[in-house]
Design a protein around this nucleic acid. Sequence first.
DNA 1: CGGTATCCGGCCGGATACTG
DNA 2: CAGTATCCGGCCGGATACCG
Lengths: 113, 113
Amino acid sequence: MLQILSLIGDKWSILVIGQLRDRTLRFSELHRAVKGISQRMLTLTLRQLERDGLLTRTVHPSVPPRVDYALTPLGATLLDSVVALGEWATAHRQEINDNRRRYDATHVPRTRP
Amino acid sequence: MLQILSLIGDKWSILVIGQLRDRTLRFSELHRAVKGISQRMLTLTLRQLERDGLLTRTVHPSVPPRVDYALTPLGATLLDSVVALGEWATAHRQEINDNRRRYDATHVPRTRP
DNA sequence: CGGTATCCGGCCGGATACTG
DNA sequence: CAGTATCCGGCCGGATACCG
């Protein structure tokens, strides 16, 4: 259970899956689409998701090389929950930020210079 | 957006929220319910969730002390998505484990002794 | 283009000890 | 009971260099 949750728990996984929502993307497209991810983390994330059977990796033997990533049916089933989470995050972003500001304002810091 | 996702991304947050699904729990009950979590991580997780306004922390001035945690309305809205994720994880646990085994069996290790 | 390989600083989180 | 404080090892992930 924890091992499955840690799959979802990886924020990069969620973002990558979200990008593959309705189209196949190649590596460089994903790299540009998921802002802030390093090439290393994108590679590791994709390998993990491929290993879990959530997406397929297709190598086209061409010059220059081209690798396409697409969701599997299993990945598509997760997409629904992921999209729901994304919508929740978007819908309550402001409210959460307000809560944080209020909390930080009322709960005085314990360390004093 | 990333900051919101990292809130969900914390596996402990998901598990704690799931435990508060239909009842208030005190600290020690949560500690027992969420298997594997250390006292430190439980405290940190609860503070984070309280700061974001997803749960309330109620201190009862008694001896021995007693602290209850309960979801806020905002926390309850997240609960739906969290439950969906949990159900997805449960439903596809076996399938994912099979995929991992198959992947590990076919993709030979790159390091050879 | 789409990766590996390697180095390494930071912080995550467990263990332990102490307190109101 | 429900925390805080402190230490510290491990691994996460960025930066960089190189390859098919």
